Simulated scan of single mutants.
Amino acid sequence: MSRPIGYYVHHHGDGHRQRAIAIGQSLDNVMLMGSGLAYRTGNLPFLDLPDDRLDDSFAGIDHVDRPSSLHYAPLDHEGLRQRTALMTGWIAEARPRLMVVDVSAEVAMLARLASVPTVYVRLSGRRLDAAHLDAFRAATALLAPFQDALDDDETPRWVREKTFYAPGIVRSASQNISANDDVVLVVLGRGGAISNGEHWAAAARAAPAWQWRVIGPCTVPADLPPNLELPGWVDDADAQIAAARVVIGAAGDGVVSAVLSARRPFICLPEPRPFDEQASKANRLAVVGGAIVRHEWPKPQEWPSLIGRAIAQNQQWSACLESESGPERVARWLDDLCARAVSNRSHIA
C-alpha cells in the first residue's frame, strides 16, 4: 500500500468533516485527524485529537500576542500541546505523501515544517491576512469547495491560479426529486446560534399561502402558526432542499452547495463570520444570479415579495454556476499531485 494522505478536519461546524469523509472514501489510503471524530468518520481511520478550544465561543482566533502568521496559538494550553505531539508523531511514523488541511493555518505550517507537502482548503471570504497568505504560499496547491465565480473579488491572482475549484464535493440528494410547490424550506446549520422561532412565525403569518418548514436549531414560538413546522435536526436535509419550492438559509458551504446542486430558488441571509466568509459568498451569489440576498432581517411584509423574486430569478440560471463536481474528481487531483511530487523528487535525485 502507498504511503497515506493525512487529512486534518477542523471542529467548528460540520462541513469540514463531511468533505473529509466524501473525499477520503475515494482515496486508497487516508488518515483523518481532528477533535471529536470518534464514531463519526464512517469506515475511515482517524486520529482523534485533544480539544484545543479555550471555551465554547471558539471562532478560530485567540486574543494574545502572537506572530502575524498565526491565528490561534494560546499559551500553556495542554490540549494544544498534546494534539501537536500526536500529529507530528503520526507524520514521523507514517511519512504521509500529502496533508490536506481543512482548515488551520497553524496545522498547515506545522506540516510544512515537518517536510510534508500540503493542500490547503480555501474557504470563502476576504482571507488576505498574513496567516492565510503564508499558508497559501507554503501549500503545494489550494482547494476551494465552491465555484470560481463565487470567489471574492479581492482574491489575488496568484492565489486563484494556485486553486483547484471543486464545488459539490459532498453529494446532494437532488437526483430525480420533484419540487413540492407549496413548501418554503428554512435551513439552519450547526455553525451559528439557535434561530429565533418568533421571526419564522412572523414570516409564516405574512406568507400564509406557503407551508413553512424550519430544519435545524430553532426556538419554538409562543404561538405556532398552522403553516409552520419545526422538526429540528433531520437526516435528509439535502433531499428536503431538493424538494422545496424555495430555500431560505445562510451562506455556509453546505447549504449553498446543496441549493446550487438542486437549482432551487434561494433567499440567502448571510450570518456574521470571520473574514466576511458568508457576506462575501452571498454578495457573489447576488452578482451571478444564484440568490436573492438580504444582509438585514426582512420585515414580515417583505417575505411574499422575496419569495416571488427568488422564483423569478431562478428561471434564468447562470452558466457560471455549472461545473463538474463530486469527491472522485478531487481524489484524482490529489493522487496526481502526489504522483508529480514523487516524480519531481526522483528528477532532483
Rank of each mutant, 00 (worst) to 15 (best):
A173K: 03
P117F: 01
N180S: 15
S178Y: 04
H132P: 01
L228I: 02
Q147D: 15
I169V: 13
I169A: 03
G232D: 05
S174E: 10
V121W: 03
L133W: 08
V121L: 11
V184Q: 01
A204K: 12
R160Y: 08
R190S: 14
L133V: 09
A222F: 11
A203C: 11
G125Y: 02
P231C: 01
D134Q: 15
R160H: 08
N176A: 13
R157F: 14
D181S: 11
A193I: 13
P231G: 03
P156Q: 08
H199F: 14
W233P: 07
G232M: 09
D236G: 07
A135N: 08
P117Q: 02
I177A: 04
F146W: 12
D238C: 14
L143P: 00
R137I: 13
A138W: 06
G125E: 05
D238L: 04
D223H: 10
L143N: 00
S195K: 14
S178Q: 07
A201H: 07
T140W: 07
P231R: 05
V184N: 00
V186D: 00
I215W: 09
L185H: 02
A149N: 07
F136R: 00
P217S: 15
V184D: 05
E161R: 13
W212P: 08
D223N: 10
H132N: 07
V121K: 02
